[in-house]
């Protein structure tokens, strides 16, 4: 049997330079993709390989010759003749500041690569002063847009507050949230179409929220966990992971990852089982699966307990 081979419309190749070296890429390629193609590393946080770029975090900025401001590599398309600098003084400065601003206001302890980038850009988040006390639960959610208590600048304000534990499956620890919008986009029209969460409030008080900050079980959440899949910081995590981290038993060195096919229905989603000490501790899904792009439903994502019911029968 022959299968038809679908050819994409051929794209025109364009020439541009990145850090002085010529690159030739198809038209429509982003600066980030072009950088990756020549092995230039660009830090990213809010960029998601399965989502439309929001270009919100600005850690990926690059300098485009002739432009007044820096450009986000994750969304800006490379243009013919463009000259891009990824390590200029201005670029390094803005990346350093983004890391410092985030580091001083958010708990980045579970965000991968951050220590390495902090070192590379010589970021010192502590220089804005001691961190303010975390807010009590509900305080940030009750803030009115366009208003704040100025204080005296003695402490650096943060987004820290207790984690939201309101269901058995996953935990929302917004002290770790960098407001990348990825969970909202995954839950909304880009993937899940449940629209259980949105960005509420504005400015520094902007936060991820259900309507009126109701608990997840009262919201439209269907526990697909697709938001956890895309969360870059660990703000959203499996209850198992959250509890183990709290108990100090979470140890990625000891974990194995096994990708298999979900057995619940006929769609055939890929599930990657993360196993530590013979227990499934979380489930992810490969982003390069052409059908599901890392998305699952509640069964594939959370329905693993029966696998490890041992003894008793």
């Amino acid at each position: 049997m022959t299968t038809p081979v679908l050819l994409p419309t051929p794209r025109r190749l364009i020439d541009a330079t990145i850090d002085g070296e010529t690159v030739r890429v198809p038209e429509g390629t982003t600066v980030l993709e072009a950088c990756e193609s020549v092995g230039t590393e660009v830090p990213t946080l809010c960029y998601g390989d399965t989502l439309t770029p929001r270009n919100a975090c600005r850690v990926c900025v690059v300098e485009v010759e002739g432009a007044r401001t820096l450009a986000p590599a994750c969304s800006r398309k490379l243009e013919a003749g463009m000259s891009v600098a990824t390590d200029s003084e201005r670029v390094r400065h803005s990346r350093k500041m983004v890391l410092e601003l985030l580091g001083s206001s958010v708990d980045l302890s579970t965000t991968p690569k951050v220590p390495e980038w902090m070192e590379r850009y010589e970021a010192e988040p502590e220089r804005f002063g001691p961190r303010a006390e975390p807010a009590a639960l509900g305080v940030r959610d009750a803030r009115r847009a366009g208003e704040h208590e100025p204080g005296d600048g003695a402490v650096a304000e943060t987004v820290e507050q207790p984690a939201k534990v309101d269901n058995d499956l996953y935990v929302r620890d917004y002290s770790k949230c960098i407001m990348c919008y990825k969970c909202v986009d995954a839950c909304g029209d880009q993937w899940q179409n449940s629209f259980a969460i949105g960005v509420a409030g504005r400015g520094f008080d902007a936060r991820i929220s259900t309507e009126h900050d109701v608990e997840l079980p009262d919201s439209a959440c269907v526990y697909c966990g697709n938001c956890i899949e895309v969360c870059p910081t660990g703000a959203l995590s499996f209850a198992t992971e959250f509890d183990m981290r709290k108990a100090g038993t979470w140890d990625e060195e000891k974990q194995t990852e096994t990708t298999t096919v979900c057995t619940y229905c006929g769609v055939g989603c890929n599930v990657t089982l993360h196993v530590q000490e013979n227990e499934i501790v979380k489930v992810s899904s490969p982003h390069d699966n052409p059908v599901t792009h890392g998305n699952l439903c509640i069964k594939g994502r959370f329905g693993f307990q029966h696998v490890q019911r041992r003894g008793g029968g």
Binding site: G146, M179, G203
Partner: peptide
Amino acid sequence: DESCGQCVPCRVGTVRQEE
């Protein structure tokens, strides 16, 4: 107060500037 809150330099930078 008026930052929309989308991007880090403005969302957090305006806070640090005020402090």
